[in-house]
Amino acid sequence: MIGTSYQTDTLIVGGGVIGCAIAYELAKAGVQVTVLEKDTLGSQSTRAGAGMLGAQVEMTKPDPMFDLSIQSRALFPKLREELLELSGIDMELHTSGIFRIAVDEADRAALLDRQSWQTEAGQRAVWFEDEELRGELGDILSPTYGALYLPDDHQVRNPQLLLALAASSKRLGARFLEHSAMVCFLQDNGAIVGVKTVDSEIRADRVILAAGAWSGLIANQLGLELPVFPVKGQSFLLDSYSPPTPFTIYTHGCYILPKRNGQVYVGATEETRSGFDRRPNLRSLATLSSQAVQLLPSLGDLPFSTPLAGLRPGSLDGLPFLGSVPGIAGLYVATGHFRNGVLLSAITGRLIAELLTGKTPSVDLEPFSLSRLQHS
C-alpha cells in the first residue's frame, strides 16, 4: 500500500506492453520511473494480442508507419537477449516467418504489388504459387491465389514479453503499482505534475499517457482531443503438442500462429461498435473457428483452450500518437498503436526514452505527433 503522497521522476499511466517497454528503456537509462495500472499488468489489449511482429504483413504502403515498424522489428533479437539476461524470462521469439495468402485475384494483385515495393525497400518478400505453397503447408484447402512469404516477420508470446519487460524493469529500479486507478491529473499553472489515485497522490516531473484504448477518455479530463477509440478483437487458443505448421498463416479475417509452448493462436475480429465491452461472444468465435478450419482443416481436431478478447487502441488515420503534448507541459503520449502494439513496443520504448533524456529521437516523430491533427 502506498502512502498519501509519492514522488517519482517519470510516471507512466498504463501497464500494457507499451507502458512496460517505456519503463524498461527509461529504467535502463537510469531514470526513476513508476508505472500505474488500474488492473493487472497487460490485462487489456496485451493479454489478448497475437504477438505478431508483422512489419511487412500489416503494412499496405511505404510510409512512415512502415519505416517505424521495420526499425522496431529489427530491435527484437537484441531486446530478447537483454531481457533474458536480466529476468531469465524468454519472450519466445518465433522466427519461421509469415505466409500472407491471397484469397482472390484482386488480393493476389495487391500482394504482388506489395512484394514489389517492399523488395525495392530492401526487405525480403518471396512469392509462392499455389502448388509451391501446398508443398510448404500441405494441409491448406484449395484453391488459393498464391501467397507472399515474409521470412523476417516473426512473432513472440505476449504474456512472456510483458513479464520479461516488467521483471527487467523492476530489476533496474522501476516501480509498478497495480490495481491502482488514476482519478485525475495534478496540475500546477497548467503543467501536469502528477496524478491522483483513489488513495494517494503521485507527483512526477513528467507523466506519460500510455493507457491504450482508454487514453482518449483520460485526455478528455484536460479538454485534450486525443482521438483514440476501442476496437474489439476476439480470438482463441487451441492446445497442441505439435502445431500443424511452424509458419504463421495470415489471410483476410483470420490468422493462425503456432506458439512455442505448443498452443495455436487463432485471431482475430475487428469490431468498432462494442464500446468498452471486451467479453468474448459466441457468434464472433464461431465465425472465426469456421474460417480457421477452412484454412487449415487439421485445426478442427485440436482441443479448444481459451477464448480471448481485448480492446485495441485505434486512431482515425491508423497511426500511433507519440511524443509531447503541445501546450501542456509535463505530459507525453504513447498510444493509438491499434493492431501493432507488440510490434511497435520496442521502438516506442526507445523513442520516448530518448525524448525524455534529452536525446534527439532516432526516428522523426512529426508524423506521429498530436500536432498532425491540426493539419488533417
Rank of each mutant, 00 (worst) to 15 (best):
Q115G: 05
E178P: 03
G122W: 06
G146F: 03
T144I: 01
L165N: 04
Q115S: 11
R124W: 01
S142K: 13
Q118C: 05
E131M: 05
F176R: 02
L163H: 13
F128L: 14
N158E: 08
R157Y: 13
V183F: 03
A174S: 09
R171W: 06
A125Y: 04
H179S: 12
L137D: 09
P159I: 12
E136K: 02
L133N: 03
K170Y: 05
W117E: 03
L148K: 08
T144G: 07
L141T: 15
F176S: 04
L172T: 11
Y145W: 12
E136C: 04
R134N: 07
Y145E: 06
A121P: 08
D139M: 00
Q123I: 02
W127V: 08
A164I: 11
I140M: 04
P143R: 10
E129Y: 05
F185H: 11
E120N: 12
I140T: 01
M182I: 12
Y145R: 10
Q118N: 09
G173Y: 12
V156M: 04
G122Q: 03
Q155W: 02
S180Q: 12
M182R: 09
V126M: 12
R171Y: 11
L148N: 08
A181L: 01
M182F: 02
A164H: 07
G135D: 13
L150D: 08
Q123Y: 00
S116T: 15
G173L: 09
H179M: 06
Q123M: 10
Q160F: 10
R171T: 14
